[in-house]
């Protein structure tokens, strides 16, 4: 699956560029499902990028594992989900030094959460690269109840915590790693726009 090109939006909406190798610097890589293809292309462009890399892969039902393992990263680990990978990822950030590069590839939910975690650990924003691959599903925070709904693919959608019908905004919180969902029928309860699929 190729890299996603998003249509222009408000300043707050994150934009993603293709991953660019920063040479054999210490690197932390986190890829999910089709994000594996971004890492394979990165390593093909500059094999030295894997020399000091710690690569964590969340297969998400894809079969990229053996090809990523063959890249011979310094450390390679597969995890069934982001929550399962989190302890290892946090430890890697805790042990990292300035000069470490972070490469993220996958859906916006993964990129947003992993970026927020890295920023909180002190990694400067300009040391983080992210490439979007795979599902267009969004991680949405309900601005009313503050609950986060993962994997949102339609606009509007129903908050999985409080049940409000929420409009999918492009307004993104870097701290939470989530887009903001706002009640769509506050003025006219029950009258909601037609449900559309979220597009790039």
């Amino acid at each position: 699956m190729p890299r996603t090109e998003f249509s222009p939006s408000i300043m707050s909406r994150p934009v993603y560029a293709p991953l660019k190798a920063q040479g054999a610097a210490p690197a932390l890589m986190l890829a999910e499902a089709e994000g594996a293809e971004a890492i394979l292309e990165l390593a093909a462009a500059d094999p030295s990028v894997m020399d000091r890399a710690h690569l964590i892969f969340i297969p998400g039902g894809t079969g990229f594992g053996p090809r990523l393992a063959a890249l011979r990263a310094r450390l390679y680990h597969e995890a069934p989900s982001y929550p399962a990978a989190l302890e290892r990822y946090r430890k890697a950030l805790l042990d990292a030094h300035m000069g470490t590069q972070l490469y993220l590839a996958g859906t916006e939910g993964l990129i947003g959460q992993a970026s927020a975690e890295a920023l909180a650990a002190g990694l400067p924003a300009d040391a983080i690269q992210a490439e979007h691959r795979g599902s267009l599903a969004r991680r949405m925070q309900c601005v009313h109840c503050k609950g986060v709904t993962e994997g949102v693919t339609t606009d509007p959608f129903t908050c999985s915590h409080c049940g409000l019908t929420l409009f999918v905004r492009d307004h993104f919180s870097r701290r939470l790693g989530a887009f903001q969902g706002v009640c769509v029928d506050a003025e006219t309860p029950g009258v909601t726009p037609a449900v559309k699929e979220i597009k790039a």
Binding site: L93, A96, H97, M98, G99, T100, A121, G122, L123
Partner: peptide
Amino acid sequence: ILSGQPLGT
């Protein structure tokens, strides 16, 4: 001096 500084330096 610049090697091995913790993240956030």
